[in-house]
């Protein structure tokens, strides 16, 4: 075989920096400029937009965390939608029965984890096609929730915002960032925690190794199956939490198919964020921002057909995905079951 060793072409550090961070910086600056301009026009609208950005991004980034834990360890999870939906449903039911929101949140997390276990069993143990495995989970969740859903169930209420003392009074960002309900705060912590675990700890190193070259990890005594199981289950738990966010924090009740494709958008967010939690967070915030702006612009008195404004978030997504984000590197063993002997 011809060993063409392609050495990386040397680029100047400035060019390298622009290539790596240019898109992120450009998008961030654009968002900041829009926000400041808007704030100078009407401060209350801006605060509403920012709060809505955070709200919309929370389930997306949680879903993305679920997806990337799986894929970093080599298991594709397209069942996030189902894990979320079932988490939302069970969390809601537990809230109805017990009236205890904390118990309900844990029920949602637990449900997601069980669904993660199911996916792990199918893809790691049975070595099933992982796309089919994920589809099974989503279909199962839609079937179960559709069948057991009863109209007219009501609950005691939902998780309420907790202002963080004087921080919540900071102009512009105070209300959006420091006056949130608990799951949203938990999301902030989770993003940073998962990022830390994935890139700075022993477990993270092993997880990434298993997703790239499981045999190499195996020859060094790393238990490939265990790493995959735990990551997929942890991912499921996070997706369950995202479901809990929908019924216990955002809406306060359950509706059929209420996840509304968020589990799949989360996959796009994960890719967009290049399989990193912080990247995914940025991507989720951008999606959320575009959506919030779009809603606000619909109300504003602008002489443009509202369909065009409604298009805005999608156009933004397409432009950014096609133009700015470079090639995403997929973990090499993503979706490939590992055979020991």
């Amino acid at each position: 075989m011809q060993n063409t060793i392609s050495l990386p072409t040397p680029v100047s550090p400035i060019k390298h920096f622009i290539k790596k961070w240019g898109a992120t910086i450009f998008v961030t600056l654009t968002v900041i400029v829009i926000t400041i301009w808007q704030y100078s026009v009407d401060g209350r609208v801006t605060e509403a937009v920012l709060a809505s950005t955070i709200r919309q991004s929370t389930p997306l980034v949680l879903g993305a965390l679920c997806g990337l834990l799986g894929e970093r360890s080599g298991v594709i999870n397209i069942g996030i939608e189902g894990q979320m939906l079932l988490g939302a449903f069970v969390g809601f039911l537990v809230n109805v029965w017990t009236g205890n929101l904390l118990v309900a949140v844990f029920a949602a997390i637990f449900t997601g984890a069980i669904m993660g276990l199911l996916l792990a069993y199918m893809s790691v143990h049975l070595k099933m096609d992982q796309i089919i495995g994920g589809t099974v989970i989503t279909t199962l969740a839609f079937g179960l929730t559709g069948y057991f859903y009863q109209v007219g169930l009501t609950t005691e209420g939902k998780l309420l915002p907790i202002p963080l003392g004087p921080l919540a009074d900071i102009p512009l960002i105070g209300r959006a960032v420091f006056n949130n309900p608990p799951i949203t705060y938990a999301t902030f912590v989770l993003v940073i925690l998962v990022h830390y675990v994935l890139f700075y700890t022993k477990w993270g190193l092993r997880t990434r190794a298993v997703g790239e070259h499981p045999r190499a990890a195996d020859t060094l005594g790393v238990d490939v199956y265990k790493v995959r199981y735990i990551n997929v289950i942890a991912g499921g738990a996070i997706a369950g939490l995202a479901g809990g966010f929908l019924t216990l924090e955002a809406v306060g009740s359950f509706e059929r198919a209420m996840t509304n494709g968020r589990g799949f958008v989360a996959l796009a967010v994960m890719l967009f964020g290049k399989y990193t939690p912080l990247g995914a967070w940025g991507a989720a915030l951008l999606f959320g921002f575009a959506n919030a702006m779009q809603t606000q612009l619909q109300f504003a008195d602008i002489q443009v057909a509202h369909q065009f404004i409604g298009m805005l978030p999608y156009v933004l997504t397409i432009v950014i995905l096609s133009g700015f984000v470079g090639r995403t590197r997929v973990p090499a063993a993503d979706g490939v079951p590992y055979e020991k002997e």
Binding site: Y200, T201, E212, H213, A216, A217, G221, V222
Partner: peptide, 25 residues
């Protein structure tokens, strides 16, 4: 070779026998 192509030499070297400080590598 049993090397993870996208890892650095150091990361490949310590995989499975990691040295840690607290919880971090």
């Amino acid at each position: 070779f049993m090397l993870v192509p996208v890892f650095s030499v150091t990361e490949n070297m310590i995989l499975g026998s990691e040295v840690t400080k607290g919880t971090s590598l």
